[in-house]
Design a protein around this nucleic acid. Sequence first.
RNA 1: GCCGGUGUGGCGGAAUUGGCAGACGCAAGGGACUUAAAAUCCCUCGCUGGAAACAGCGUACCGGUUCGAGCCCGGUCACCGGCACCA
Length: 816
Amino acid sequence: MKAYDFKSVEKKWQDKWEDAGVFHAVDFSEKPKFYGLVEFPYPSGAGMHVGHIKAYSGLEVVSRKRRMQGYNVLFPIGFDAYGLPTENYAIKTGMHPRQVTDQNIAKFSDQLKKVGYSFDWTRVVDTTEEDYYKWTQWIFLQMFDHGLAFRDKTLVNYCPSCKVVLSNEDSQGGKCDICHSDVVQKSKDVWYLRITEYADKLLEGLDEVDYLPNIRTQQINWIGKSTGAFVNFPVKGTDDETLRIYTTRPDTLFGVTFMVMAPEHPMIDKYADRIGNMDAIEAYRKECAKKTEFERTQLVKDKTGVKIDGLTAVNPVNGKEVPIFVADYVMMGYGTGAIMAVPAHDQRDYDFAKEFGIDIIEVIKGGDISKEAYTGDGEMVNSEFLNGLDNKKDSIEKMAAWLQEKGLGEKGVQFKMKDWAFNRQRYWGEPIPIIYCDKCGMTHVPYDELPLKLPKVENFEPGTDGESPLAKIPEFVNCTCPKCGGPARRETDTMPQWAGSSWYFLRYIDPHNDKALADMDKLKYWGQVDWYNGGMEHVTRHMIYSRFWHRFLYDIGAVPTKEPYAKRTAQGLILGPDGDKMSKSKGNVVDPNDVVDEFGADVLRTYVLFMGDYEKAAPWSEASVKGCKRFIDRTYGLQDLLTDKDATDYSAELSSSFHKTVKKVSEDIEAMKFNTAIAALMTLINQIYDNKAINGAELKTFLQLLNPFAPHVCEEVWEAQGWKAEAAANGAEADGLLALIPWPTWDEAKCVDETIEIAVQVSGKIKNRIHVPADIDEAGALELAKADEKVAAALEGKTIIKELYVKGRLVNIVAK
RNA sequence: GCCGGUGUGGCGGAAUUGGCAGACGCAAGGGACUUAAAAUCCCUCGCUGGAAACAGCGUACCGGUUCGAGCCCGGUCACCGGCACCA
């Protein structure tokens, strides 16, 4: 047999699959459906990364297996092409982002096809195409019309000299990265999507989907729901003002010894003229505004703040007057921006109280508050009507009820998740189709005029004034108001990178529809994504965003299911050969193209799945790639061992091995244990080579099992043996291509050997291994075990206390 | 600090979830073929002692439960990921 020439063979089969259209999903097919989804790539200039290969190869194997099992499979691909890297590359090279994107998509498509993935290339989506982003804009406007998209002022890092908004990274040490002048916190108008309104729905939805536990936990933590109470503290020195706070610990209300407001709290400005030390407070606020998030978290231990002169709070439960402080350990963005401080039972309040010499009153027994705050549970003390109660069991409820009854507060819920800041001052994104009219106010582009096209211009560099590049294009900015027909201006910011990817899985179902984002009957046919695989880095971004959009679309009747993804898994990273994360700067990046050129697509696909546990990170090893290369070559070489080509059943020598391997590979693929599935096939091929013969029935099964992993070599051998023609003659689909030949089945009864080897222990220590009939019973096994020489020697002179037989595994004789 | 995860040969990793630790692959060493190299094939390969049969030890560390623990329980250490003054 000639050596296996993967180069010509792989290309040949990729062309044949495409010509036969074997991977095209069929709408409304009678077969059961399977929708497998992988995260579509951002088509960067660097081309594909081996990480993409690992991410895609997992569901590729599942999808190929499903087709062989008779499913109508939708396994699509597309491109998430809006984004900053493309725009920056375009600015650097003088090319247009459109041109860069088209080039990169062509490159990615070519690379993906060379790996032989069974994507349905007739359903490709590109988020930057007009007939795609038309619907991204449509969804945004639906949210706008339902009050979920809104503008609000918020605090951002701002350089007054450069007139730009800066990220935290660009304003370290409170200095502008560009001009080194002091950065201030400034409130600025920003577009938000009201994702917080969906926080509970996103949380509840997790109960009806099958996500890996760590994915589920991360989402729950990200949403960060807490239950507690809002309490209103009357403020002395004001006109009937109350300071509203949120607490998860209403049980500790009797322990309040001071209050804290965030530096940005509005009450400070409202009563500025009654505050005796406003200068000191202003100075403190300025200090805080200069601090970056980074500095704030670095200084966790050192509590700072200023006491407000002239305002005090009254604890509503006991009428006690307590001081109010301004301190930056309280954030404006969570709860009400003010807290009640209970130093005895909160470490942060404790640190602050120690710093400022404030009283610490214990209300829960169990700790030593002279040393640190006690955050555990216990019996209530110093708490009047709560005394003697268990804080957790009774007093939280009792206090909440009491507050409610007296009208001093009420139960409440808070989330860590914030609303989604949705606009970017950049060119390469979906234009936000909002119009500002002096007469009519804020309105939007009519639905039937979508898409609002991104103007094709030469100059798309961002301005120095923090304005979007689109603001510099009068033909874009100036428009007529759709309501009154008068002159109006367009919103010039664009949507963030995460917009287009929040609904792309719906577009695959009906990619060319110009009446709706997708046809409802097709949406109902395909239903949820059955299995979605991607990276952990998207669990708290893309996964949250897209679940939010999908749930909104469900609520307005645009999609038939609440949750988009029935099942979500994640692959582990591929590290560089040095064990570090792959990065250009470290020079440890492996290019999948090089691997395809040198070893072939089958080897690449097999290796990324064989290299380790699919869900864990593993370093790349060139040497190990060669091991997979040998395996593929040996598969091709099986033809030399073919003896009884027309055999219809497995040979006696290999029968149980084949049944066992069919079972193992079938089950392991479902459990994403690709590494052990491949190992089982390697074990089997070693056994075949030892046996020096394989019959036709066995070779067929071997090729079927390996096909999802290494489809090119399998199709090639299948065809070379003439089974393609044979299958076609028997009416098999798509001209007898292995890709659609039915998946093999196994017979549980034939998975067992006639004799098995079991271990014999004496008092838990292995003494020998004996061969026994597979169907032996306990008495028989014990008898044979005791008859063994070594075992008998070990038992010599001892009394047997206990005898155990674990079926098919071992015998343990406990003796003294 | 909080949440989640991991720790097994020289390396990547297996181990039917309490039942023969180290499957499979790599690397290494020895041999065959070859003028030679590559490729291929055969043998060895957890550690210690021994020529060998064999014996002892061994799944991060300490302890426990059990006839039996990589797996379960209690404690400790290390590393990775996420969140982080969230009241």
